[in-house]
């Protein structure tokens, strides 16, 4: 598996998980499908970009920083559209970027 694919799959997976947490916020009732699709799409795009970045730059710290920054920006965009729950969206979104950044730098081992 190459790095963009890893980023894509991991980003999408964590995006779904991220979106599902909206169930715990009563005020998002009725928007769940949109939130999950949006979150998945956000994770997918961010993961793909982080994967491409990892293919170009072989540096763990840079990969993680890029992942945190990019996912944080995406999350900020979503929060601004939402106009609410800034911290609850940006913090987890950035952590997703951190995980994807780490994973795309570390795996696969030899072939990048």
């Amino acid at each position: 598996m190459n790095k963009p694919t890893i980023g894509l799959l991991l980003g999408a997976g964590l995006g779904v998980l991220d979106g599902c947490t909206a169930f715990f916020y009563p005020d998002t009732k009725g928007m769940m499908t949109g939130i999950i699709i949006g979150s998945t799409f956000k994770g997918l795009v961010a993961g793909l970009l982080i994967g491409f970045f990892a293919r170009k730059v072989h540096n763990m710290a840079a990969g993680i920083a890029f992942g945190v920054l990019l996912s944080g920006l995406f999350a900020l965009g979503v929060a601004m559209m939402q106009g609410n729950h800034y911290a609850a969206i940006i913090v987890p979104g950035s952590v997703v970027g951190l995980i994807v950044g780490f994973a795309t730098q570390k795996y696969p081992h030899a072939t990048a």
């Binding site: 964590l14 729950h85 911290a87 913090v91 987890p92 952590v95 997703v96 995980i99 994973a103 570390k106």
Partner: peptide
């Protein structure tokens, strides 16, 4: 990776609890 994921889950729980 597993530890990061667990960290994510814990962080999620904390965000839910406090925010």
């Amino acid at each position: 990776l597993v530890l990061l994921f667990l960290g994510y889950v814990v962080m999620r729980a904390l965000v839910l609890y406090f925010l």
